[in-house]
């Protein structure tokens, strides 16, 4: 019986210690605890808690504002830490719109790497800030959006290089098929913006084309 009592004692103490450790790490040691702990408003420190922007129309809950507290609805943060800064004024009300619609990333997450999408098993990492306009197209395909100039340059390029001949875009184009009637259809590009951008993709794609030994597209373009 003594052995069993020791088993009970030691196991229980182990469980106790781990439970306390888990409680401490969950309630005090997360990165956002430190960030919010330093944030100040005119009235003094803010209360440290999880925050989120819920956008019921898009069925999104973005918790980015747990660290970027300056952008949380109704917060007026004064401190000069970079994460806690407010959002610059843009057309949309960021406090109702949410973050990931434009910036991509994993809005549900509350830890930096997960939120920025730099983890395994999250397929849409954050867009680099300068490409954030790329997401306008997610909702406003045919409308004029702030990046209109870039967009029209891109549209013209698309037109000029005659990408429409094989690729369909917003219901236009895609009439030609490499290899004739039975050939392969060019992929529809209407929604490529939806899943975020990989800025290296086009370079890699062009490179692949250079390296490719044949294939319908090359043959069609007069290659081997």
């Amino acid at each position: 019986m003594k052995k069993n009592k020791y088993l009970l004692l030691i196991s229980s103490l182990g469980v106790l210690a781990l439970l306390v450790a888990a409680a401490v790490s969950e309630n005090f040691l997360k990165e956002w605890h430190a960030i919010q702990g330093q944030a100040r408003t005119q009235e003094g420190p803010i209360d440290v808690r999880l925050r989120q922007i819920v956008n019921p129309d898009l069925k999104k809950a973005d918790r980015c504002v747990t660290c970027h507290v300056g952008m949380a609805p109704g917060e007026q943060i004064l401190s000069d830490s970079k994460v806690a800064q407010p959002h610059k004024n843009v057309v949309h009300d960021t406090a109702t719109m949410g973050c990931t619609t434009c910036h991509g990333g994993q809005g549900q997450a509350t830890e930096k790497d997960d939120a920025h999408g730099n983890v395994h098993f999250w397929t849409e990492p954050m867009l680099p800030a300068k490409y954030a306009y790329a997401s306008c197209g997610t909702c406003h395909t045919p409308l004029n959006v702030p990046n209109l100039e870039t967009l029209s340059t891109a549209r013209k390029t698309f037109e000029r290089l005659d990408c429409y001949s094989c690729h369909r875009l917003d219901g236009r184009g895609g009439t030609l098929r490499p290899g004739g009637e039975t050939g392969m259809e060019g992929p529809d590009l209407s929604h490529v913006g939806l899943k975020g951008y990989n800025q290296n993709w086009y370079t890699a794609h062009a490179q692949k084309n250079v390296e490719a030994q044949g294939g319908p597209w090359r043959r069609f373009q007069g290659g081997q």
């Binding site: 003594k2 009592k5 009970l8 004692l9 229980s12 469980v15 106790l16 439970l19 888990a22 409680a23």
Partner: peptide, 19 residues
């Protein structure tokens, strides 16, 4: 020994209750 064992088990249960 027995009492300490039971007490630490009770303590572990108590803390887990909080969670």
């Amino acid at each position: 020994l027995g009492l300490a064992a039971l007490a630490s088990m009770a303590a572990a249960f108590f803390v887990s209750m909080f969670g």
